[in-house]
Amino acid sequence: MSFAKSEKGKILIQPLVASNPIMVQTLGICSALAVTVQLKPAIVMSICLTVVTTCSNVIMSLIRNLIPGKIRIITYMIVISTLVALADQILQAYVFSVSKQLSVFVGLIITNCIVMGRAEAFATINTPYKSLVDGIGNGLGYSAVLIAVACVRELLGSGKLLGQQVIPDFVYILTGYTDNGMMLLAPGAFFIIGIFIWISNSLYKGEK
């Protein structure tokens, strides 16, 4: 039995496409739209969210039998906001420029529904190891969409990837090609996500 077919493998792989947190479960849309103007902040944000989701899943799973059901939401909040505060401090210390670019959106990981949703739906009823895998899987699913959207927006919007010029100068001069400024603005993000959802719905409509 290969890893992909095993139970843990399924937990890891399912959120990547079939139950992708952004496309299918529509969780955590805010940041997916806001930080994808350029690739670099998107990557940093993805790493942050994956780490936070994984850690919070493991912690919630470890203490799942200790907390009464009534105060669980508050408990999630405290655990998640502690983790996010840590992540924010680390970002400010090591990648200050990106941290300025992400501005309030690092803090908004707290209210990112993916973290909350996975804690509520998965970590409170599963063992720590499974929750760890689930956290990584969902984090990666989120990262995949974020990075894909950021690639499209940065490439079409400014002809660059990671700040490097990708579309060579002669294309601009010879063919009169211009960057699509709308991609850098808010509407571009909405359209790209809409189109992505359209594509993924069309590809996977058989499975629904």
Partner: peptide, 23 residues
């Protein structure tokens, strides 16, 4: 609405158009 776009997809496109209007 085209089939794959129904539901969430068209909502995003609509929001995008609204966002353009607000710009």
């Amino acid at each position: 609405v085209p089939k794959g776009l129904r539901g969430l997809g068209i909502t995003f496109i609509t929001t995008g158009l609204m966002s353009m209007a607000f710009m």
